[in-house]
């Protein structure tokens, strides 16, 4: 593995550097290959949606980018700089924790189960990292958090603990919490899957707002095909740790080429 690192540039150069590049990324759990030599570029301000059957590696893509899992092979670049690796003595070596913490500041992530800190109020959740990590004054952090809570429609509940909020409300706070770090990239992992049907809309509405008003680069895993079609610049269909097919929403949903994509889409449509 050491030798093959020579195949990867120390940083991406030239015009049109993608915001995110997965280059030849492989992830294994024991013998199970979850991501299989994945290549994927995401351009700045692009909204890329990942769909695919359960277990196909969608979550893993996001977790690898957030460096919540160790990479087995390949390199992930963010803004042209290696994310999973760092340059040491002119070669790429595994990133250490300090470097990863630095790099992660560019990325925000929202989880299926929100993962709000239960012992903190909505507002406290949103100011924790800005104060502790970015070094913002408490006053500035609160101002920023209140703006964001207002944006997601949760300002009224700013002083409630998560246990007193509905799932949809918790997820909106979680989105505000991520945005408070002013990330350039946002990751959404099935943020509506744990929600009751009637509150899904309040969360998708927030994401819609983000797409129209902000210049964020976004990667979203979802099972809501209608929403994906409406909002994405590009859709990737994952199968077995690989991108089976990708294209614009109209191409992928309107005229899927691969048989597996067709099967998946018709199965999902039937279920709805």
């Amino acid at each position: 593995m050491k030798d093959s690192m020579k195949d990867y540039p120390l940083k991406l150069e030239g015009d049109n550097i993608p915001m995110v590049r997965f280059q030849n990324v492989t992830k294994r759990y024991g013998d199970l290959v979850v991501l299989d030599h994945l290549d994927l570029d995401v351009q700045e301000a692009e909204m890329v949606t990942i769909i695919g059957p359960s277990g196909s590696g969608k979550t893993t893509v996001l977790r690898m980018l957030m460096a919540l899992e160790k990479i087995n092979d390949g390199v992930i670049y963010v803004e042209g700089q290696p994310m999973t690796h760092m340059v040491k003595d002119g070669t790429l070596t595994m990133a250490d924790n300090k470097y990863l913490r630095q790099q992660r500041m560019n990325i925000g992530m929202c989880f299926q189960h929100f993962n709000l800190f239960p012992h903190m109020t909505a507002l406290e959740n949103c100011i924790e990292a800005p104060v502790q990590v970015l070094g913002l004054s408490k006053k500035d952090a609160i101002a920023r958090a209140e703006d964001l809570l207002d944006m997601v429609g949760m300002l009224e509940k700013a002083h409630e603990h998560p246990s007193r909020l509905s799932g949809g409300q918790q997820q909106r706070v979680a989105i505000a919490r991520s945005l408070a770090m002013r990330p350039k990239i946002m990751l959404f992992d099935e943020v509506t899957s744990a929600l009751d049907p009637e509150v899904i809309g309040e969360v998708t509405q927030v994401i819609r707002k983000l797409v129209s008003k902000h210049n964020l680069t976004m990667l979203m895993v979802t099972h809501q095909m209608g929403f994906a079609r409406e909002i994405s610049d590009r859709v990737c269909f994952f199968y077995d740790g690989k991108i089976e097919e990708q294209g614009s929403p109209d191409e992928l949903f309107g005229d899927p080429k691969s048989e597996r994509t067709q099967q998946f889409l018709s199965a999902v449509l039937e279920a709805n």
């Binding site: 957030m66 919540l68 924790n97 992660r104 993962n115 924790e128 990590v133």
Partner: peptide, 21 residues
């Protein structure tokens, strides 16, 4: 585990992750 991951995603360092979260 999600709490550790949320703390990581927010770039909190280990000392802060332990002491605050």
């Amino acid at each position: 585990r999600g709490q550790w991951e949320a703390a990581t995603a927010l770039s909190l360092n280990p000392v802060r992750t332990y002491s605050r979260i």
